[in-house]
Design a binder for these strands. Structure first.
Length: 309
DNA sequence: AAACCCTACAACCGCGCGCTG
DNA sequence: GCAGCGCGCGGTTGTAGGGTT
């Protein structure tokens, strides 16, 4: 037994609004307001429309403060940022964009922005455990970290030469750092999209590239996110660091191991990229400081778990 | 020129939530 | 506490128009 319909569908008009209907609704709302009751409004206004349809038409199209036209690059960045932070909460995202509606933002994301982001995906080159990275990209903070074992030329932990590592560092053609699970599971990617990534975004990426893992949680928050940043550089920052708790590596702060998930600590020590939200508080330098001071409501994403599907 | 495909976006739908009696 | 109601939200569908074959 479904919910009773909000109106008599047999007696209301559906489909595109005519200019006359637009004018009628606009005139009525501007003269009388909504009266706090959209259901009753169409009858009062002389419209053969469902109240919900009137509300939608007003909010998404007729409202005087609606901004029509293309989205700016700044709006793109804000949408990406907020989507990473809160997922598909379109109304919340739209509230940060004056003149934009949730429907606008949702449509824009689904039709353009998501594709725009995915188009930047680059072909990956997976390193084997014998590969080394260019010496110029060796993160000094990593090699300085006594808890992380490194090979002579690689910034990453040494591996057992007889068995492939369970977690692989990967560079793309532009030396952007990726982290993969057995060459399939990319959990961070592309220096042109550095920043925070929500599970929704990562799922999109994972589905696009056919990866076989997903992010399941972070250190201590139910809103998992993952960070990768290269500050727009074409090479790995010399202040980046990474550690993995496979058989060879441990980290004193990493105390939440589970049997079923591989775990990874990422401590990117460079300035946080992406000009997140271009807000006035973008002065953080490390993820920990970022998470706890500038944007306390955001998660500490220093830790990320990945788990095979 | 026609058929087909793709894209953008308007509109609809159903559900959850909060308010009220 | 509950039921009824309307609102708001996010997901989905419909459709117009432009581009391509």
């Amino acid at each position: 037994m479904g919910r009773a319909p909000c109106c008599d569908k047999a007696n209301v008009k559906r489909g595109p609004w005519s200019p006359e209907e637009d004018a009628t609704l606009k005139n009525y709302v501007e003269t009388h307001g909504t009266g706090g009751n959209w259901i009753a409004l169409p009858k009062k206004a002389g419209l053969r429309r469902c109240g919900k349809s009137c509300r939608l038409r007003w909010l998404n199209y007729l409202r005087p403060d609606i901004k029509h036209g293309g989205f700016t690059e700044e709006e793109d960045n804000i949408i990406c940022t907020l989507y990473a932070q809160m997922g598909s909460r379109w109304s919340a995202i739209a509230s940060k964009l004056p003149g934009r509606t949730d429907n606008d933002v949702k449509n824009y994301w689904n039709t353009k922005l998501k594709k725009k982001i995915m188009a930047r995906k680059v072909t990956l080159k997976t390193l084997t455990h014998n590969d080394t990275l260019p010496s110029t990209s060796t993160p000094s903070s990593l090699t300085n970290n006594q808890n992380v074992k490194t090979s002579q030329n690689s910034p990453f932990p040494s591996q057992n030469q007889n068995s492939p590592p369970s977690v692989l560092p990967v560079l793309d053609a532009n030396n952007a750092l990726f982290i993969t699970n057995n060459e399939k599971s990319i959990i961070s990617f592309d220096q042109t999209h550095h920043g925070l990534y929500s599970p929704q975004v990562m799922d999109d990426v994972v589905s696009q590239i056919g990866a076989s893992s997903r992010i399941i949680n972070n250190n201590n928050n139910n809103n998992p996110m993952l960070s990768l940043s290269q500050e727009g550089s074409s090479s790995i920052s010399d202040s980046s660091s990474i550690a993995m708790n496979n058989n060879n590596v441990s980290h004193p702060e990493q105390q939440h191991a589970s049997d079923e998930s591989m775990e990874m600590l990422m401590d990117f020590g460079f300035g946080f990229p992406f000009d997140f939200a271009n807000g006035p508080n973008c002065h953080y330098e490390r993820v920990g400081e970022f998470a706890t001071s500038s944007y306390p409501e955001w998660v500490d994403f220093s830790y990320a778990d990945i788990k095979p599907h």
